[in-house]
Nucleic acid binder design. Structure first.
Lengths: 191, 191
DNA sequence: ATTGTTTTGGATCGATCAGTGCATAACGTG
DNA sequence: CACGTTATGCACTGATCGATCCAAAACAAT
């Protein structure tokens, strides 16, 4: 019996995600969010309880999407481990012109890391999951003789994600794809 | 004949630097700057023309300080090139508890990179200088037989600074020093 | 068609934003 | 001591911040 929504909540979260991704939390005003989503203030505050809550929803959407894709890649046993790692890193080499430069997660760690424990907890847990998955994949490759078993698997996994973070910062700065490619190749030489 | 300043401009820039470094540009208000520097609004706007100008001064101070230290290290020919690279990366391993986590330059690239061309230009030029210096040092080590001459020196230099960026993002997230250490060791294995 | 519930638009809230104006205080110089 | 100049303290500007309120609108169920 109630009046139904005239907008798609998912689309609104998606628009907010791109805006926060591009401009950060503080620099994005609720007015900007209204314009980007095409909604009025009331609709936004009715569907989401606050700017911070909408940010949380947007970040979760980003994290879920990218983590799912990464985990699928990490656990794809049809590919050699080196190839999987290459593809993980490769996502930061050629920027998608339809999306903001850099990585929303990295941006958020940098902007809110020291100040927002809720957000930090969310990102930490996600990072742990990915780290554990890659560590397991590397260990499996080691026992299969695909990689040198002497190296610390957890350290190698941390290494991959650290380089990925660096590549995404470089992408935010507008690094040239050929430079990024050289970094990926140099990274793989450690394995 | 005029009334002299009762505060040290350098100390004020230093306090502003730490605040911007810790909290970012947008999240730092002029009121915060007054409290951190101990100055009144008039004194700040008299010595610096705007919040943006003070940020620019603070960032320049940071860049000058860190770039000088890095260049000195890069060009220290008494050390093997691998040791120089290790020490560059090592600066991100054990955080100084007296200073904000992470790197002011990285934070600024992430927050203002897509929006502030002046700041971006400053950071790009600085990055170019450091990249050129490390490329030259690597090339020299290659001709001296210290490193494999087959590898692209510029690519290796980009690799080092990319990993450094990743380490600094990880430091902002509060990464454990032992994890950071493992990343440095894995990085050096590419050389 | 009436009722009940929720959405929506628009005005508006107090707080805070970066920045300014002005009167006064403080100092070096003559 | 008096003058010239700058620094400082404080009130204040208009704009914008995130968030709220309320009345009108829209729809489903009866």
């Amino acid at each position: 019996m109630p009046r139904p929504r005239t907008f798609d909540e998912d689309r609104a979260v998606d628009a907010a995600m791109h805006l926060f991704w591009s401009s950060g939390y503080e620099a994005t005003s609720t007015q900007d969010l209204c314009e980007a989503t095409g909604l009025g203030r009331s609709s936004i505050y009715n569907a989401f309880s606050s700017k911070h809550d909408l940010f949380d929803r947007a970040l979760r959407r980003y994290v879920d999407r990218f983590t799912a894709a990464q985990l699928e890649l990490i656990q794809d046993e049809t590919l050699p481990i080196r190839e999987r790692i290459r593809r993980i890193l490769w996502t930061a080499v050629e920027p998608d012109p339809d999306e903001p430069a850099g990585c929303f997660v990295i941006n958020t760690i940098v902007e809110l890391g020291p100040k927002d424990a809720d957000i930090t907890g969310l990102l930490d847990r996600d990072h742990e999951v990915k780290l554990a998955a890659l560590t397991a994949a590397i260990r499996a490759a080691q026992t299969a003789g695909e990689l040198d078993a002497e190296q610390d698997a957890a350290g190698l996994a941390a290494y991959v994600f650290t380089v990925l973070g660096g590549l995404r910062v470089a992408a935010r700065r507008g690094a040239a794809p050929e430079s990024q490619r050289a970094v990926v190749e140099a990274t793989l030489r450690s394995f």
